[in-house]
């Protein structure tokens, strides 16, 4: 049973279950047929269609812009939250930071929709999407930063204080360099979450602005063509690279590899 053949077989079957569906999406993005049914021949056609699809390109631009702004903001706020939670406990703040992460996404989506329209009287669009993305990303950044802080020997901060460093100097020269890998990992996480989010964006986007996931959703719902496969393949490639970067960047920054 330790690592017997049955365990290997079961585990490999699960790996196959994880990868086969995605592989099929990628393969059909090169298929010279409108239907995702049988293999006809190799083509770049769907990528060509994609690159001339103004709506899709605009949506991709929106997604990137939103992800950039919201991940930077969420990284700043999340780092602060992580530090506050680590240093001062602050159970109320911890509750506020972690609950949006733990509850079903739709709840945050509809409550923000209600709040934006009924209370702020805000026209839904870029701003509302960004606020929503920041709200659910803060928790992820905070958790990563707090975990990083928990691994640091407290006496180093005491030493800095004894040597006369101000709180700002301690942060600037001691704390920040030490938590930087966590901050970067958290930021990348927030970026991926933002670019990937469908549910919360769906409720806070309104009619004017489309992000990439919203555009993909309407294509899947209305008219499926292999253009969806092409955009999926490109997205898959991009996000895989981000995940790999977030895995390996911290090591590189610490000068380990």
């Amino acid at each position: 049973m330790r690592r017997g053949p049955w365990l290997w077989a079961a585990a490999l079957a699960v790996y196959a279950f994880l990868y086969v569906p995605l592989a099929i999406v990628v393969v059909y993005s090169f298929n010279d047929s409108r239907l995702n049914a049988e293999w006809v021949g190799f083509t770049w056609h769907w990528y060509d269609v994609l690159l001339h699809d103004e709506d899709m390109l605009a949506a991709a631009g929106n997604s990137l812009f939103i992800a950039l702004v919201s991940s930077l903001s969420a990284t700043a706020l999340g780092t602060m939250a992580g530090m506050a939670m680590h240093r001062y406990g602050m159970r109320v703040l911890a509750f506020m930071v972690l609950t949006p992460v733990a509850m079903p996404e739709i709840l945050l989506g509809v409550s923000l929709l209600l709040f934006f329209i009924q209370v702020l009287n805000l026209t839904l669009g870029m701003i509302s999407i960004m606020i929503a993305h920041i709200t659910f990303s803060i928790g992820f950044v905070a958790v990563i930063v707090r975990a990083r802080l928990a691994g640091i020997d407290e006496s180093i901060f005491e030493a800095a204080r004894d040597l006369g460093a101000s709180p700002w100097e301690t942060f600037r020269y001691i704390t920040f360099p030490l938590i930087l890998p966590g901050v970067i990992a958290g930021g990348l996480m927030a970026f991926t979450l933002s670019i990937d989010d469908f549910v919360i964006t769906f409720f806070t986007a309104g009619v004017g602005v489309a992000t990439l996931p919203l555009r993909i959703y309407s294509m899947i719902k209305i008219a499926v063509t292999p253009e969806v496969n092409a955009v999926s393949t490109l997205l898959l490639l991009t996000l895989t690279m981000i995940v790999l970067a977030s895995r390996f960047a911290p090591d590189v920054l610490r000068g380990k590899t």
Binding site: A37, D196, S232, L235, L239, T240
Partner: peptide
């Protein structure tokens, strides 16, 4: 990492894959 990687693809793409597979 191999478990996380497919998870990095967009949620809708993972659902769409089953649209193809079960079509």
């Amino acid at each position: 990492l191999l478990v996380i990687l497919p998870f990095a693809s967009n949620f809708l793409i993972r659902v769409y894959a089953w649209m193809i597979l079960l079509g």
